[in-house]
Amino acid sequence: MPSIFITGAATGIGRAVAERFLAAGWTVGAYDINPVTWSGAVHTGLLDVRSADSWAAALADFHAVAGRIDVVDNNAGVIVDGPVAAADPAALQRLIDVNCLGVTLGARASYRYLRGGGTLVNMASASAIYGQPGIAAYSASKFYVAGLTEALGLEWRKENIRVVDVWPLWAKTSLAEVEAVSVRRLGVRLTPEQVADVVWTAATARGRWARGKVHYGVSALDKALYLGRSLAPDRVARLLTRVLAG
């Protein structure tokens, strides 16, 4: 049966993705820096996404159980809110290490398993539509994820590896427990299960047209914001972001 390896799977969106694929009969590897204890039906293990050695060991461990890895879901991420000028340097370093280095090391380690038809799903964010004040470092890290997704989609095309990402607005997880203005103005409306459904759609796309899609929105609002940003001049996009998030 097909299999998926998921990072950050102890809670939140990662857990919801694991449950979604488990319900569809997939072999699921749920890995996290914290123990995954919510189900005995998934294969679990510890993973520090900041470590290349940890990635290599975790993927090899799951491959030994599943016999194949069809999808890797680069889901793990952290957030820092508040003004950058007042941020703890150690917290910023951790954010960049998890959200940028961790995603990159995950892609690098997954390459050998996904060659020939696999899919890498990276967790981006609607905060990558335009840089978000109050969560500037987090927002910038998701721009990185989007750029990495696009570049690897081209770099790995001849290896028949699809690389896609998912761009949700705020979902009902601990990541949304911040003081960002956009949380108050836009609300926290998405559930982890809604995001997991889009991960499922992205990972199981069939047909040349569907498989050519790279960036996946989740709600009607984030899709509209993404489309609007692609059409709007910078001055208009900046003004809209000030209204929604500034």
Rank of each mutant, 00 (worst) to 15 (best):
I69V: 12
P89S: 06
L186E: 12
G25R: 11
I4V: 14
A66Q: 00
G116V: 05
N122F: 07
P2N: 11
F5Q: 01
V65A: 08
G187V: 01
G8L: 02
Q132N: 13
P133G: 11
L47G: 00
G217E: 10
T241D: 13
D32T: 04
A232T: 06
S219T: 04
S127P: 03
A16E: 06
D165W: 08
V98Y: 00
T44L: 00
R157W: 12
R211M: 10
V78Y: 09
A245Q: 05
H43L: 09
L47I: 11
Y130E: 15
A85Q: 12
A52I: 00
G153E: 02
G217P: 14
L59G: 08
A90I: 04
S139G: 05
F143M: 03
A202G: 08
V121W: 05
R20W: 10
I161S: 05
V49N: 00
V72M: 02
V183H: 02
L95P: 04
I6D: 06
F143L: 08
Y111W: 14
R112V: 12
V42N: 03
L175R: 10
C100N: 05
R20C: 12
A56E: 13
G207Y: 09
S3I: 00
A90E: 12
R15V: 09
S182E: 13
T201S: 14
F5S: 13
A107N: 03
T173D: 03
T104I: 08
I69A: 06
A16D: 11
G12H: 03
L227M: 10
